[in-house]
Design a protein around this nucleic acid. Structure first.
Lengths: 122, 122, 122, 122
DNA sequence: GTGGTCTAGACCACC
DNA sequence: GTGGTCTAGACCACA
């Protein structure tokens, strides 16, 4: 995974997004331990405090929980993970519609184009 | 339009993307004159040289052409614009599939979700 | 107001408590602007980041809100402030009962002692 | 009992307070031997000299007395213990009034709130 | 070695 | 000058 940040958007927010993706995508599985703060910070090329903040916020949202002296773990609540997947996928789809709308495509055309793409690509 | 840049990606490349969007989306119409380099540079909060490079590259790609002492214009070649729209929309669609694949969705599910979204949102 | 901290309890938590007291006690009135982070930090003899964290948490709790480039303000929601007062006063009373229980006094004795104190002191 | 200290207040003073609480609360009973200095010091996570000072001061106040080669004992004078209990409880009550005054409650309200609390809590 | 906290100092956007 | 963010580096408690 490559970490590319956008200027003008708080880095810790973007870190949260990336980690959410890993959770929703199954790179970090329910109940599993995730790498220590410092390791994730190094991987992302970011100060440990910044990564710490991102993880703390995710903890507050209930996606992670931390065990003192042991590590951080992904929540085991299926409902929460389902919700996360749903919200992320809807976000992506919404962005697609916004972008393609800008290109002058209407709903029908977008749905058709997506279906076509799915059929053509191997 | 807001300009948000990604760290670690050449800015002129990102400028090109944004301008392509404006052309494909009709903000800059075929045959129309686009704002002067300096104006675009100020708007984007970027050095005029950087914007200049982005525009030159777009000229090389044939999307723009410049008329000495007059300014830069959007190409009038319909085919080129069609191609641009097509490539941009395919890029967006491809990204959608990549992202939703990460979330564990297969093609069928993605197409269904997109169709569903188009139906539900007012 | 003197700032005395307890070892073994996160300072930012104690800062939150003190500021809550000021809000509930009317030192910081509803809708009013509170002093800037840096000023409060100096007053408390604490790093600005620490005070910042305390204030951010209070914001998350809804007791404060911040206006960029202007300052931080106390919420105007009466209900929230009422709740704060209630919870603080109950906390104090509960602590009193705990302490006096340790001294071997039962409820009746405690209530009597409090009533007595109120009568005697000028 | 957990030992939590306040920064900016002499530790031996705080140790005295805690030990007074144990005496008044009956953890250390009249005439009983209390644990050796070193043990108390370890328990409190404090230098033995500091604990020694706290105990000496309590001796000066008459709450403890030491028997050479044997150890330290809690005083058996009932009057003294009664006084201690009284002063501690009054201190707690006074603090309550101070805190609730800050919240804008007057004496009547405070007494009422305390009585109410005693009635409601199981 | 883990998460958690704190400090010191810096930079940014906004007005 | 305001709030907000980020870095670098340090210390702590816990097991």
């Amino acid at each position: 995974m490559e970490w590319v940040f956008k200027e003008g958007v708080a880095i810790y927010t973007q870190l949260m997004e990336q980690i959410k993706l890993r959770i929703a995508g199954g790179t970090f599985r329910p109940g599993e331990k995730i790498p220590p703060v410092r390791e994730l910070a190094v991987e992302a090329g970011v100060n440990p405090n910044t990564m710490q903040r991102a993880l703390s916020e995710l903890e507050r949202e209930g996606l992670l929980y931390s065990v003192r002296t042991s590590g951080r773990y992904v929540t085991e609540e299926e409902a929460m993970l389902k919700t996360l997947q749903k919200s992320l996928s809807e976000k992506f789809i919404q962005e697609l519609f916004e972008n393609l709308n800008k290109l002058g495509m209407d709903r029908g055309e977008i749905v058709a184009a997506v279906a076509q793409w799915a059929k053509e690509e191997q």
